[in-house]
Design a protein around this nucleic acid. Sequence first.
DNA 1: GGGGTATGAATGAATG
DNA 2: CATTCATTCATACCCC
Lengths: 185, 185
Amino acid sequence: MENFDMHCCNEKFRMTDEQVETLRKQIAVYTYISEQLIQRHTHSSSRQHLTNGARMRMFCDSRLIDKLSSKQRWKPTISQVQALEKIYAANPEAPNKETIKKITVDLSEHGKISESNVYNWFQNRRARSKKKKHSNVDAKSKVDSKDKIPKLNESDENLGHQNSPENSDFLPYFNLELDESFAIL
Amino acid sequence: MENFDMHCCNEKFRMTDEQVETLRKQIAVYTYISEQLIQRHTHSSSRQHLTNGARMRMFCDSRLIDKLSSKQRWKPTISQVQALEKIYAANPEAPNKETIKKITVDLSEHGKISESNVYNWFQNRRARSKKKKHSNVDAKSKVDSKDKIPKLNESDENLGHQNSPENSDFLPYFNLELDESFAIL
DNA sequence: GGGGTATGAATGAATG
DNA sequence: CATTCATTCATACCCC
């Protein structure tokens, strides 16, 4: 937990992260209110909006405040995810700083992204891949050993999918030639 | 764990839940691909889509497959919920792996359940309990007691917002009179 | 049967 | 890196 020094009214305070965050949100709301006031001042002749403090409440709708005061979390685009998955598949190890920088620059083409986004993504990707592996270990081997689902044609051109980073164990078969006698009773 | 009988090619198989699930996903993907093929056949004159097996890969975007093959979400039975609530009441902290394993085994008596179900349940339970707490009045006292951010004018007319059901602890101050010397260094 | 809520699950980010 | 938290997504269910 790091702290911040803040100067206010000739006094110095040490603020916790939490306090800084509260402050940030507070400022976000002030910013919005100020913009609204300017807009009203410009477009409207009803000046009471500028002087009646109580009216400020109208800006305090909880959803609006949610929007204003919530830190947006990064939402990767489809193509970004695809690119990241590809990189991960090629080398699932943690990329070094230089690599991260490069990836970030490259993926900026497809949308907003930062280095820490990339870093976090790889951290999470590895962690969750590992967790999934562990939770599947017993089930997987069990299935492998006695799987009696009649397999649909598994041609060479489909094998690539078995190594795809996602769902490789769920969807190994993509061939279209269904057996007509196939049925679940 | 219940099994299903499946008939295929005049042979009879007993399938585990997991095998059935794999099969279900497989069929979901086939269904989607078939629909796509029909659509292309109808709307397009480029017939190579219908014959080139390699093109099937284009449908295999992981997110799409996720969507198509998403399994039904776990629905805890009444007794399972009761048991989980009881455990939570005794100790609302995140249970460790061993505990989760034990709980899972215990609750399997009352219906289908997995360790990740239990894990998620506790995650959500805590998160939503906390959120609910925040929406109640306790936010006010918390802020009052330890918040050392130099407060902007907090007039009586603003106090009402502290009891608003949402975000009351995030935005206790709505006064517009900013102090000009205010700055974060 | 469409909108609203509850809730299982996924995931970006933080923490130690 | 292992865990945990915060937030969001998705959908089952419910009520009008």
